[in-house]
């Protein structure tokens, strides 16, 4: 039984892991682009971007998932994602990526704005180009400042992946819940918790390592 549960949960966990990893791959760079938009000096760029961030961060991810999955079908009378598992997964990935990109963008913005103007000015009076100032001076300072809030957000993402079940993307909790119905046992749910704990534990260690690596300055 234990082996059977383990294998079943492993399947769900892989789906969780896939959603988590792909969301990061998309949302990390997308968030950076959004953060540049939210800091733009041009109001027609900055204002809509800030509005979108405000909406996405101000509404539940659950709601966004449902809207993104069912919205196109209801509005255009055409099911954009297709009804199969692959289509549902893509819909979930889109919702997660947009949502997390907006959260990440605010972290990037905080990090970038926390670098004192004097750092840019020092680079300028030394004749450095804007790109050099960003890459050689600002970037590492930004990374150092965003690692702690980023690690919080990423650990939240691990747990948030379970929301994908509302559009029937099977993930680990879904799989463990099945055992309650079919076998009348509850312990696979606790076992699922262990999966999350171990995975988040590994992530925490990783982030602590990065933080420590960057603690040599300031």
């Amino acid at each position: 039984m234990f082996l059977e549960v383990t294998l079943a949960l492993l399947g769900g966990f892989l789906s969780t892991l896939k959603l988590f990893a792909l969301t990061l791959v998309i949302a990390l760079p997308l968030g950076l682009i959004i953060s540049f938009g939210s800091m733009s000096r041009i109001p027609v760029i900055r204002k809509p971007v800030k509005f979108i961030i405000w909406v996405i961060r101000g509404t539940p991810l659950m709601l966004q998932l449902i809207l993104i999955f069912f919205g196109p079908g209801v509005i255009f009378g055409h099911q954009l994602w297709g009804g199969d598992a692959g289509g549902r997964f893509i819909a979930a990935l889109v919702a997660f990526s947009i949502n997390y990109a907006c959260y990440f963008s605010e972290i990037y913005r905080g990090g970038i704005q926390s670098v004192p103007v004097g750092q840019y000015e020092a680079g300028k009076v030394l004749g450095m180009k804007n790109g050099e100032i960003f890459r050689k001076i600002v970037l590492l300072q930004v990374i150092k400042r965003i690692v702690p809030p980023m690690s919080n957000e990423i650990i939240t993402l691990v747990k948030d992946t379970s929301l994908a079940r509302v559009i029937a993307v099977y993930e680990i909790i879904w799989d463990s819940q099945k055992f309650i119905k079919t076998d009348g046992i509850i312990w696979p749910l606790f076992y699922t918790g262990v999966y999350y704990l171990v995975f988040n534990g590994i992530l925490t260690l990783l982030f602590n390592y990065i933080e420590k690596k960057l603690s040599y300055f300031e």
Binding site: P116, G118, E121, A122, I137, L140, K144, Y216, E218
Partner: peptide
């Protein structure tokens, strides 16, 4: 043509 030394140094911490 100019160099500038700031009041608060502005060294690059890293």
């Amino acid at each position: 043509h100019f160099g500038l030394v700031f009041q608060n140094f502005n060294l690059f911490p890293q």
